[in-house]
């Protein structure tokens, strides 16, 4: 028996919205400790890693580990039928399920929707993501980071991110010209202005803005985002989801020819 009930179903809707342009199909692994998912985009440039802890669910039961192979597009179609205030319950009784049941219930418990989504058997290629002590960690407003990426992507396809003890600089060079946006360490009380820099070693890496813009679809999951960088390492962009877990995106940097 597997059953997971989310009090705020809208969070699940937002997660699926955030990853649906990046990955087409995923294996969600359910275990006693919660749900996890890892998937790469078709070009293998970016990787999505989702972890949802059992404690974050209103009800959670998973008697034995199961793998749920899902088409994100089809999952998204079903989740469109859930209201933003609904609870969402995922359920299956089978040991090797061929479908996953969904229950959506509104706050008054006056409307209950039930769907079943056919599952797929997917070859999963799980990569060992090393635990990394990142040499530059930037925590800032997710909306502000999203705005910077969007603005710069009209000038160039790539952005160079360079950290120093005091600031982080986003630089672009394009056909029309060049520019940069520098964000300084700022211990403001207001979330939108606050920028926390933890720089053990400065780094300078270049990334494709197209992917960063896709990651930023997760902006509604968290008011802050953390950018974790080390030389010769993929950028890790993390959105923490309250008590539930985290959605992480990894992006391989541009490398020398």
């Amino acid at each position: 028996m597997f059953e997971a009930k989310l009090q705020q179903g809208v969070i699940f809707k937002k997660i699926v919205d955030a990853i649906k342009d990046l990955v087409k199909s995923v294996n969600i692994d359910a275990s006693t400790s919660g749900l996890s998912m890892q998937a790469m985009d078709s070009a293998h440039v970016a990787l999505v890693s989702l972890k949802l802890n059992e404690n974050g669910f209103k009800d959670y039961r998973c008697d034995r580990p199961i793998t749920l192979g899902l088409s994100i597009e089809n999952l998204s179609k079903i989740l469109k039928c859930a209201g933003n205030d609904d609870t969402i319950t995922l359920q299956t009784d089978e040991e090797e399920p061929s479908s996953l049941k969904f229950f959506f219930e509104n706050q008054q418990a006056s409307k209950i929707s039930e769907f079943s989504l056919n599952l797929m058997s997917l070859d999963s290629e799980s990569l060992g993501i090393p635990d990394t002590d990142y040499s530059s960690v930037i925590q800032m407003s997710s909306a502000e980071f999203s705005r910077i990426c969007k603005e710069l992507s009209s000038i160039s396809e790539t952005v160079e991110i360079e950290t120093s003890k005091e600031s982080v600089k986003f630089s672009v060079q394009g056909d029309i010209g060049a520019g940069s946006i520098t964000v300084k360490n700022n211990q403001s009380d207001k979330d939108v202005d606050r920028v926390d820099l933890q720089i053990d070693q400065p780094v300078k890496l270049t990334f494709a803005l197209r992917y960063l813009n896709m990651f930023n679809k997760a902006v509604s999951l968290s008011s802050t985002v953390s950018l974790n960088m080390s030389e010769e390492n993929p950028l890790m962009v993390e959105y923490k989801i309250d008590d539930l877990g985290s959605l992480r995106f990894y992006l391989a940097p541009k490398i020398s020819d």
């Binding site: 270049t206 490398i255 020398s256 020819d257």
Partner: peptide, 13 residues
């Protein structure tokens, strides 16, 4: 510069 891939950095587990 060329685009790196995740596999350039993370190995198979």
């Amino acid at each position: 510069m060329k685009q790196g891939t995740i596999k350039n950095f993370f190995g198979n587990s």
